[in-house]
Design a binder for these strands. Structure first.
Lengths: 167, 167
DNA sequence: ATAAATTTTCAATAATTATAGAAAGTTTAG
DNA sequence: CTAAACTTTCTATAATTATTGAAAATTTAT
């Protein structure tokens, strides 16, 4: 496979995977492009490469900055703004996990907590609701905690320990 | 909070979380409903409770069965079909993780492998593409392996060990 | 074999979400 | 201060995805 084909394939695959980590196509494609770029890119560069409009580029770049995985880079002598993404995959994973936890998982855990605290009126259906949502709550909380810890700081150490345990 | 309010809240929250694990709203809501039900439900029951059409119910029930988290239950003397979902959260998590890995993660890992095997033509940009996609490949593979192992059979044992390690 | 009960399929429609492109806003150089 | 360079915002439109509802298919009882 030659460079251009490989590049296109990467951007489109990684882009379509966006849904898996909860972002839209354009956002994922922009991030992909920056991820394999050897230098910061301007909005023009991105529009040009991905064939998307200025507005779309602007909006999605901002969202990527909100996620904390893309940053503005000011290049001396240049009036345009340039952008780069986090290049270290571990850091990238850490940011993404943290954001998803904050935005999606934590709020759900909160609701599960509330729901599982429903007053037990003695009926079978209420007992079932409480039991099941409590189980889900505990699972979600454990998974969230694990994910965050795993992906945090001491990654290398913990990952190694984990792999030893698991293998 | 009273039963009905809690139930509605659970179904709508868990339903909207569907996107997080890659399924649509109706599918997630049906699963939620079954999850807190004390007995198998018929298509009529589900349509009625969730106010969705027959076609929608049928389609989404089938998808849930494809995912392996809902099963048909035949009730003697009844002509209708009845449905139940996996009630054990660990089993549920196992099924979901396995399916997502198979449907989404594994194929992406395959593409990353291909892309990172691009012929090195000596240019900087090709080197960068190879380096970055290789890093992503390794990360994705590790994450996928961990997830599957964690969620598999020896769950209780491994979860306990993990929690000890991580805490 | 037939008809009633039930489920599935599928084309039309609705709802949602993404994108374009131009107007408005902002920043910078001189 | 002004004009050019650039970015953001916002509404109209396009694309995608979900949902309905009715016809077709299937199953079951007699």
């Amino acid at each position: 496979m030659e460079y251009q084909e490989a590049k296109d394939k990467f951007i489109s695959t990684w882009g379509s995977l966006g849904t898996l980590w909860g972002i839209n196509k354009a956002m994922a494609q922009i991030q992909s492009l920056l991820f394999i770029s050897t230098k910061p890119l301007s909005m023009e560069d991105i529009m040009e490469e991905l064939k998307i409009s200025r507005g779309n580029t602007s909006t999605n770049l901002r969202q990527l900055m909100d996620w904390g995985i893309v940053t503005k880079e000011l290049i001396p002598g240049e009036r345009k703004e340039f952008f780069t993404t986090e290049k270290d995959v571990q850091e990238l994973a850490r940011h993404i996990a943290k954001e998803r936890s904050r935005r999606e998982i934590k709020p759900v855990i909160k609701v599960l907590k509330e729901v599982s605290s429903t007053k037990d009126d003695g009926t079978e259906k209420t007992k079932e609701l409480i039991k099941q949502t409590k189980a889900l709550h505990d699972l979600a909380e454990t998974a969230d905690t694990m994910m965050n810890k795993i992906v945090n700081q001491e990654q290398n150490w913990i990952t190694k320990s984990l792999m030893k345990l698991i293998k």
